[in-house]
Computed example of a mutant assay.
Amino acid sequence: MVQFIVDYEARRDADGKLIVYPLPGVDGGGRFEVAGINEKYHRAEAIRLRRIIEAGEPDRAEREAVEYIAGKTDFPARIARTNAIKFLLRDIAWNRGPTGAVRTLQIALNLKVDGKVGPKTRGALDAAENNPKALIGAIRSAREKYERRWAGRDETSIFWEGLVNRWNKAGAQAKTYL
């Protein structure tokens, strides 16, 4: 599951090896990233992975990027019981943090949005996972609502097209786990 996130985020050389990607100034993630692990929000890890790549070990850097992203996205994934929803919650958590993943889920479940996993969220998720295909669609719609409300992004953002593409790819990937 996490490998998909790395594959989506990663920039690679002609041989398919992970590279350090310099970020454009408008990105907001700092000067560079490795597999979506950027210098601004994950400074120590981004620098560590850059050094591993510079030492000629891109495969090791990729394995460690997978481990790092898995660790950062474990919490929201643990609240789901189906792999499809675990995957989507990991993907959201990687982009919007664990609280963002829970908020997005709460939007999808038509609950009060507080970013906390309590009995109402757990109960609604458990019921919704009986129809994971429908929940995948609801989460896709919720991702868009979350971006508009909490991230302040919409069609005028230079990132919008990429976000929509990611949501759609993630939904398609989630369906492969059904």
Rank of each mutant, 00 (worst) to 15 (best):
M1F: 08
V2P: 00
V2S: 10
Q3H: 11
V6F: 04
V6M: 09
D7W: 03
E9H: 05
E9Y: 04
R11K: 15
R11C: 12
R12E: 06
R12W: 06
D13L: 09
D13W: 09
A14C: 02
D15K: 13
G16W: 06
G16E: 10
V20F: 02
P22K: 13
P24Q: 08
P24W: 05
G30C: 03
E33T: 07
E33K: 08
G36M: 03
N38S: 13
E39N: 09
K40T: 01
K40P: 04
Y41A: 13
H42S: 14
A44M: 07
I47M: 14
I52E: 08
I52Y: 01
D59E: 15
R60V: 08
A61P: 04
A61I: 04
E62M: 08
R63I: 00
R63T: 05
I69P: 05
A70Q: 06
G71E: 04
R78S: 15
I79D: 01
A80K: 11
T82A: 14
A84I: 01
F87M: 02
L89C: 02
A93M: 05
N95Y: 02
N95E: 07
G97M: 05
P98C: 10
A101M: 07
V102G: 07
R103D: 00
T104G: 09
L111D: 01
L111G: 06
K112N: 10
V113A: 11
V113E: 04
K120H: 12
T121F: 00
R122E: 12
A124Y: 02
L125C: 12
A128V: 03
E129H: 13
N130G: 14
K133D: 15
K133M: 11
A134F: 03
A134P: 02
I136R: 09
G137E: 15
G137M: 11
G137C: 10
A138F: 00
A138M: 02
I139E: 09
I139L: 15
R140N: 14
R140S: 13
S141K: 12
A142Y: 00
R143V: 06
E144F: 08
E147V: 03
W150H: 11
G152L: 06
S157K: 02
V164G: 10
N165S: 15
N165H: 15
N168R: 14
K169L: 15
A170H: 02
G171Q: 10
Q173N: 15
Q173T: 07
T176M: 14
T176I: 11
